[in-house]
């Protein structure tokens, strides 16, 4: 049993390292394409965490929707307008700086507050029921709000892809 434990723990930290690496790539890279692919790495790492925590369905959905759909949409949007030799310059000033730091701090505060406030309970024993009936009832009865919100995420992803892919002439007078 101990070998399994070591392997599982190793995988867990491996996935965390993968997520950190992807996140840093997303934030620091100067090439838009690298940023999006870093995001894909983050998504795959998160899927691995879901898998590790005994929720393979979530893991598969994570890969199917975020890597297979959202990232492909973003990459598709970017590849039309940007070539590998076109490195963006840093725009580390004014509005961008304020917006970015505001979002980061808000996100950090929200997440930490949730983490501290939530009364964590151990997850119930894995249900293991992936029949159509069970999934359908879960999606359209129990978790219908979350299910509908996911489609908003997809809409935002498509809008984001359009905004990113739009040529910069309109906002940039130079």
């Amino acid at each position: 049993m101990t070998l399994y434990r070591y392997l599982a723990e190793g995988m867990f930290f491996g996935f965390i390292v993968l997520i950190m690496f992807g996140g840093m790539l997303t934030v620091w890279s100067r090439l838009l394409m690298h940023a999006v692919l870093g995001l894909a790495v983050v998504f795959i790492g998160v899927a691995g965490l879901f898998f590790h925590l005994g929720s393979p369905f979530m893991a598969m959905m994570q890969v199917l929707i975020y890597v297979g759909a959202v990232c492909v949409m973003l990459v598709f949007g970017i590849m039309v307008g940007h070539s590998p030799t076109q490195v963006d310059r840093l725009r580390w000033s004014g509005n961008n700086f304020l917006l970015a730091s505001g979002t980061c701090i808000a996100g950090f505060v929200l997440l930490t507050a949730t983490l501290i406030r939530t009364q964590w309970t151990a997850a119930a024993q894995r249900v293991g029921d992936f029949s159509m009936q069970h999934l359908g009832e879960a999606f359209l009865h129990q978790f219908v709000l979350a299910f509908e919100l996911i489609s908003v995420v997809l809409l935002i992803a498509i809008l984001g892809a359009i905004i990113i892919a739009r040529p910069p002439q309109e906002s940039d007078p130079s």
Binding site: P56, V67, G68, V72, F76, M79, P84, F130
Partner: peptide, 28 residues
Amino acid sequence: DFDIGLIFILAVVAINVLAILIAGWSSN
């Protein structure tokens, strides 16, 4: 045997599209 083997295959195969995109784009 995976309860959701079918979804597993679909999810994994979806990565190939990303690979083709990367290949096409990075070749310039």
